[in-house]
Design a protein around this nucleic acid. Structure first.
Length: 267
DNA sequence: ACATTGACCTGAGAGC
DNA sequence: TGCTCTCAGGTCAATG
C-alpha cells in the first residue's frame, strides 16, 4: 500500500497520536528488519526519549526524537502503523512495538518484511546516501527540477516515474494514475516525450493526483470517479471513454491503462 | 552506464 | 476442504 500519499497519512497519524509522550519500552520482533542499527542500540536510544516531530521524504518516514536522533520507517509493500491501547487491538504482524507512558502503544506492522526500520542523527545525510530524488510535494519541486531529473532517462515513462533516484515517492499505483490523467501510455519511452507531455505529467502529479489523493486520505474508495484507481478492480471501465481497462507488464510491474485514452508516442 | 529481471518475504485468493 | 499456483501499492543485486 505505501506510496507517497500513504506515507503522508502515516506521518499525520504519528503527529496526531504519538508526539511528546515518554517512551518506556521498545519491543523488536524482527531483527532482520533493522538496518544500520542493532536492537540494543535502538532500545537504548529510544527509551526515555519522546517523539518531537515527523517528516517524510518520498516513501520514507522520519520520526524525530528529543535527543536529536530520528527513527526511520520504510513500509515496503505491506507496512503500516497502528496506535492502540488494548493488547487485543494489536495488529497481526507487529515487527516493532513502542510503549508510551500513557499506556498506549505504537506498532509497526509489516506482513512481508519488505520494509525497514532504521535510526539516524542526520536525515538529510540518509536521503543523500540513499540517492533519493526530490520529493514532488516540496514547494521547490518545479517543472525545471522535474525535467532535469527525468529527461536523462531512456526507459519506459512508467519505470522512470517509479525510479526513486529520479523522483521519490511514486510507486506502481500512482504512476498509473499520473499517466492516465496525463493521457500517456505507460510504455512510452522517455526520449519520445515532447515538452507538452512532460508538462502534463508534471502538472498532473504535482497539482492533481498527489494533492487529491492526500486530501482523500489515500483511501481509494474516496477518490474521485475521474481517477482510474477506483476502476481498476471495480468495473474495469475507463472513466473518460468507457473502454475496457487493460493491464500489461512494464519492467516487471503490472500497469493498468486505457488503450484508447493513453496512446503510445512513437515519434 | 543504464534498463530490466529475479530474489527477497509472507499471505490471500483463484482454480482444481 | 485442501492443495497448488499466482499475485501483491517495494527495492536491491545481478544480468544483459
Amino acid at each position: 500500500m505505501p506510496e507517497l500519499p500513504d506515507v503522508e497519512m502515516f506521518k499525520n497519524y504519528v503527529k496526531s497520536t504519538s508526539l511528546l509522550k515518554k517512551i518506556e519500552k521498545v519491543q523488536v520482533n524482527a531483527n532482520e528488519m533493522l538496518h544500520g542499527v542493532s536492537s540494543s542500540r535502538l532500545k537504548k536510544t529510544m527509551i526515555g526519549a519522546r517523539f518531537q516531530s515527523a517528516r517524510r521524504h518520498g516513501k520514507y518516514l522520519f520520526v524525530q526524537m528529543d535527543n536529536g536522533k530520528s527513527i526511520i520507517f520504510h513500509f515496503g509493500m505491506t507496512g503500516f502503523l497502528k496506535y492502540f491501547k488494548k493488547p487485543g487491538e494489536k495488529p497481526s504482524h507487529c515487527r516493532l512495538i513502542i510503549y508510551f507512558s500513557n499506556g498506549y502503544r505504537l506498532a509497526y506492522d509489516c506482513q512481508r518484511k519488505l520494509g525497514l526500520i532504521g535510526m539516524t542523527g542526520d536525515v538529510g545525510g540518509f536521503i543523500a546516501e540513499k540517492g533519493l530524488g526530490p520529493d514532488p510535494c516540496k514547494t521547490d519541486f518545479d517543472f525545471t527540477t522535474f525535467k532535469d531529473a527525468f529527461k536523462r532517462k531512456k526507459g519506459a515513462v512508467k519505470s522512470t516515474l517509479m525510479n526513486q533516484h529520479v523522483i521519490a515517492g511514486i510507486g506502481n499505483i500512482y504512476s498509473d494514475e499520473i499517466l492516465f490523467q496525463a493521457e500517456i501510455h505507460p510504455k512510452t519511452i522517455v526520449p519520445m516525450l515532447d515538452d507538452a507531455s512532460l508538462k502534463r505529467i508534471y502538472s498532473e502529479m504535482k497539482n492533481n493526483v498527489l494533492p487529491v489523493a492526500i486530501k482523500a486520505g489515500a483511501q481509494h474508495g474516496k477518490f474521485p470517479s475521474s481517477f482510474i484507481i477506483p476502476h481498476r478492480s471495480r468495473d474495469r471501465k475507463c472513466p473518460k471513454c468507457g473502454s475496457e481497462i487493460l493491464h500489461k507488464k512494464v519492467s516487471g510491474r503490472t500497469a493498468y491503462f486505457c488503450p484508447r485514452c493513453q496512446v503510445k508516442q512513437t515519434g
